[in-house]
């Protein structure tokens, strides 16, 4: 992955109104921090940032005036539609200090169990790895071609690139092939009907009071009934 350089300018006006105006100008607000130096609020060109993100850049060179830092692109916040970035963090990193980053997991191959009616299900989509900034892999490819129904691929079975380690529990499942749960046929008998209306949750005190009232009512009604029977006799 070639090194990406992003130039940023220092933001002096902070807050919701200022950042909204920035976004209208085609800039993205961000912050640079880490390595024991004070944080700096910055603004970056949205186009360049989005190009870097879509290109898979993880560590970028950020230029602020005369300063040049190597920084990890961290926690880019997408907007509601997921098309643009609203804010981004840059964590200053040293090239000889390991960092923790989440790397995308990509499944490769068609599992053998799929031919038998199984369904491949990916349960872990990102793996947190620890490595030097220059060793951050773009993705981790997992071969699932030999998985039969009921088989799983776990974290301990992954082959990580040299210099990359993970602290994720080795027993965590990455992908599994499961039996397909078939949908009911059209026109088949409907499932067991539940109640037409949900049960109403009553506060504890009220529920008890009502129960007591019900019991007393029942007793009274019982006593009245006995009296009436006596009168009849």
């Amino acid at each position: 992955m070639p090194a990406v350089t992003l130039s940023a300018e220092v933001r002096t006006t902070l807050g919701r109104r200022a950042t909204r105006l920035l976004r209208e100008k085609g800039l993205v607000p961000g912050i640079v921090y880490g390595r024991g130096r004070p944080p700096v609020a910055v603004a970056i060109a949205a186009e360049a940032l989005e190009k870097a993100l879509k290109g898979g850049a993880r560590v970028v060179d950020i230029v602020i005036g005369n300063d040049r830092d190597s920084a990890l692109l961290y926690d880019p916040q997408p907007d509601m539609a997921g098309e643009h970035v609203r804010h981004v963090d840059f964590v200053r990193v040293a090239q000889d200090v390991a960092v923790e980053v989440a790397v995308r997991i990509e499944l490769k191959g068609t599992p053998a169990g799929q031919a038998e009616g199984g369904v491949l299900q990916q349960t872990l989509h990102e793996l947190t790895v620890k490595c030097l900034p220059r060793d951050i892999p773009e993705k981790i490819v997992v071969d699932v071609a030999d998985l039969k129904i009921g088989d799983s691929r776990r974290v301990k079975e992954l082959t990580l690139p040299h210099g990359v380690a993970t602290a994720v529990d080795s027993e965590v499942t990455v992908a599994t092939v499961r039996h397909q749960v078939t949908a009911p046929e059209p026109g088949a008998a409907p499932a067991v009907e539940g109640p037409a209306e949900p049960e109403v949750i009553k506060p504890e005190g009220r529920a008890e009071a009502e129960e007591e009232a019900g019991e007393k009512g029942g007793e009274k009604a019982g006593a009245k009934g006995a009296e009436k029977e006596k009168e009849k006799k």
Partner: peptide, 25 residues
């Protein structure tokens, strides 16, 4: 589909305003 248990049977209609902030990914 409907809830199994509810605290109140009926709710006010309200207005749907703004954009979703959760469950957008």
């Amino acid at each position: 589909l409907m809830p199994k248990r509810v605290k109140y049977r009926k709710t006010q209609r309200g207005r749907v305003r703004g954009n979703a902030t959760r469950g957008t990914e």
